[in-house]
Design a binder for these strands. Structure first.
Length: 267
DNA sequence: GCGACAG
DNA sequence: ATCTTGTCGC
């Protein structure tokens, strides 16, 4: 599988943490918070995610478009490029966005609502990945994160659909949302042009069976697959990597390789 | 100053 | 994120 697009890092992309934080403070004023957002279960929803090979300085992004009513995949795209920024908590967008934007650009159809891996408003400067993506694309966007980052919240009741406020000190920045009975919650925050209530309703609809939304599960699987394919015959930098034992596992192994098992293991 | 910290 | 062995369940 060839990864069709090469996404160079934009020439004006921030290279320092200080610059990146300044960009966040400047762009955060453009976030639109007074739109309810698209009605859940209608139109299209697009999941985006990225996978890294820091060893080879490669990031691959995937965008998977779903029909919101049926959760059927209607379109997919990937894009690869150099890693644009180191991982710094609070500056994740600068690492992921160039590749994600390239993947979104290569879609033929309208992405509709974009579901990001990570946060939007729930961010030290109220401008996480989902907000940044929304502002740069103009698309409605929300964030679904797998852990509470630096924020705090009560454990929501055990039933699917239960929520509790996600707090930064006294300010509500998102919600912990239980998407399955008795399973750890996910952490939803607004990105751009969606309100928190609608963002949670979308997230719940997108997760009828697993903890994570189908949109992010599809995007996660696709970018990993594409990264493997893009990287499979490239030599690694000499020295570092430990040589693993035995031979690599065959496709369609035993248990532990099913989607359900993967989901549970990260839960 | 130190630890914690989306992916 | 990524690495990594085995184990459980449908």
């Amino acid at each position: 599988m060839a990864v069709p697009i090469f996404a160079p890092v934009p020439a004006d992309w921030p290279a320092t943490e200080e610059h990146a934080r300044a960009v966040q403070r400047e762009l955060r004023g453009r976030v639109v918070l007074d739109e309810p957002g698209p009605p859940p279960g209608t139109g299209r929803v697009t999941g985006v995610d990225v996978a890294y090979d820091d060893e080879r300085d490669v990031v691959v992004a995937a965008a998977v478009v779903l029909d919101a009513a049926t959760l059927t995949v209607v379109e997919e795209a990937t894009a690869a490029g150099p890693v644009a920024f180191p991982y710094v908590p609070g500056l994740l967008a600068f690492r992921e966005l160039p590749a994600v934007l390239a993947a979104l650009d290569s879609l033929a159809g309208d992405p509709g609502l974009v579901v990001c891996d990570g946060y939007g408003r729930a961010h030290p400067r109220r401008f996480g990945l989902a907000s940044h993506l929304g502002v740069l694309t103009g698309l409605p966007a929300l964030g679904v994160a797998k852990n509470p980052f630096t924020f705090s919240c009560a454990d929501p009741p055990a039933a699917r659909g239960s929520t509790s406020p996600l707090l930064d000190g006294g300010e509500v920045v998102g919600r912990a949302l239980r998407t399955q009975d008795g399973v750890r919650p996910v952490f939803v925050s607004v990105g751009h042009r969606v309100d928190l209530e609608t963002a949670c309703a979308h997230t719940l609809r997108l997760a009828p069976r697993f903890r994570l939304p189908e949109s992010t599960r599809h995007a996660d699987a696709l970018c990993r697959r594409a990264l493997r394919a893009a990287t499979l015959h490239q030599p690694r930098a000499p020295g570092h990597p430990p040589v693993p034992w035995g031979k690599p596992p065959e496709p369609g192994d035993g248990p532990g390789s099913t989607p359900e098992a993967r989901e549970r293991s990260q839960n």
